[in-house]
Amino acid sequence: MNSGAKRWLLLAIVVAFVTSCFSASFNRYYLGVAIDVGISTIMAVSLNLINGHTGQFSLGHAGFMAVGGFTAARLTLTLSSSAPPDSAQGIALFVVAMLFGGLTAAITGLAVGLPSLRLRGDYLAIVTLGFGEIIRVVFQTSETFGAATGLTGIPKQTTLFWAMSVAAVTVYVVACLVNSTYGRGFIAVHDDEVAASAMGISPTRYKVTAFVIGAFFAGVAGALYAHHKQVLKPDGFDFMKSIDYVVMVILGGMGRTAGVIIAAVLLTVLPEFLRGFAEYRMIIYSLLIIALMLLRPQGLFAFQKKSQTRS
């Protein structure tokens, strides 16, 4: 990774910061949607590391998001009396909560990644789906996390700045990882597992790494989501939510970060434009997905990839 990319990252964060300084004058609806876009981007790009670059197939990404969101929100709710949301301590607590959420999700990612050593393809898909559902059921029955009601009254901490800069960091980290010498291993595992291990690349290590890092960012996204919507309900993290992100990754073109970002933006903003159609909205949305897959099966935004030779 060259310093050029670092400069871009810095610039993205500065722009996010400057823009969020004016956020008070924004329409709150657009602001909310912009934050949604940031969160979707984090989710899609981190899932792309698992599904796209490493070639695994996870259907449980919403589960990681739930773990991160619930643990982070539980932390801020427990400590919010000593650190009011507007104060510096409040913001510090939010940052700690984000990292904590990411960490717990990463640990869960490790637990889910381990079975992936033995399973592949559809079997892995169903196991990750299963983990996602188990996570949901556990939160749904746990009184600590509010059971069926979920957690409410979570302080509003997620600003456009946080959503956008975490998204920038996610893109940066995933891009650096995949483009580094170490990271070539992900693509090697994706392209041909047997050949990769013959070359001395341990598929196991790469798969688990992908799961752990992907889960970490999903957990951070969950924390952002919790402090954005201010309410978390276990119901919201069923496997349909995971499917939403899988659609983004596949529509964007597996393993193509730029395409996945555009797909994340598009699929978050598009339903908003369709609101005018009320009850026809989801019908149109589903038809669009079918049409897009039929017309652009390689992914809507499968741009040319940087000199990567693939078989």
Binding site: I243, V247, L251, I289, I290, M293
Partner: peptide, 8 residues
Amino acid sequence: ITAIGVSL
């Protein structure tokens, strides 16, 4: 994904 689209 197409199948998911059909299902929805």
